[in-house]
């Protein structure tokens, strides 16, 4: 990386923060802390996306993930934690942790090797800010069928969520 550019310093800070928050999310013993560390991860991810020129996508991440998904997670934690009691039972016991670390490490090594082999130090274009109007033109033009399909997915998820979580009186 070329550290004479301000963008690379911003990237370095964001990368350190997002890595630390993600690792805390998967390793903490406190469930609520895991959800709150996910907030930090998502906020930093939104910052990285905005840095890459995706202003609309960045703010959608803030709205949907931090605003809705994490609140849903907190509700899920509050409801399911009641009888778990001891917080030590959050992870698998034994050498599962070592095996998982080996798998994740190998995956990271393979991804890094592939990316470095393929792209090396190919530079991003200097100008790349995507305006919201471009996204709208594309979304309601070329991608209108997938957009409608996603709206059906959301409708099905809504109905499915209600059906699953509803308490049946008659049975």
């Amino acid at each position: 990386m070329d550290f004479s550019l301000a963008g690379n310093w911003v990237f370095l800070v964001l990368a350190v923060v997002i890595t630390a928050a993600a690792m805390y999310t998967v390793s903490t013993r406190n469930v609520v802390h895991a959800a709150l560390a996910l907030v930090t991860t998502m906020a930093t991810a939104a910052a990285i996306v905005i840095m890459l020129g995706g202003e609309f996508v960045g703010w959608v991440i803030v709205l949907v993930y931090i605003g809705a998904v994490v609140v849903l997670f907190l509700f899920g934690i509050m409801i399911t934690r009641a009888q778990v009691g001891k917080a030590t039972a959050l992870d698998h016991e034994g050498n599962v942790r070592v095996m998982a670390a080996v798998v994740a490490g190998l995956m990271f090594a393979a991804i890094t090797y592939g990316i470095v082999e393929l792209f090396g130090d190919a530079q991003l274009p200097e100008e790349g800010v995507v305006r919201t109007v471009d996204i709208a033109d594309s979304m309601f033009g070329r991608f209108v069928i997938p957009f409608e399909a996603v709206s059906f997915v959301l409708l099905a998820a809504l109905i499915g969520g209600i059906v699953l979580a509803r308490r049946d009186e008659e049975r």
Binding site: F11, T25, V26, I48, G120, L124
Partner: peptide, 22 residues
């Protein structure tokens, strides 16, 4: 800014997620 730094960061996050799932 290179493409590799962002892609490797994505790979790192993905690997951390895999570790968490396992």
């Amino acid at each position: 800014m290179t493409i590799a730094q962002f892609a490797i960061l994505g790979g790192l996050l993905f690997s951390v997620g895999v570790y968490g799932v396992l």
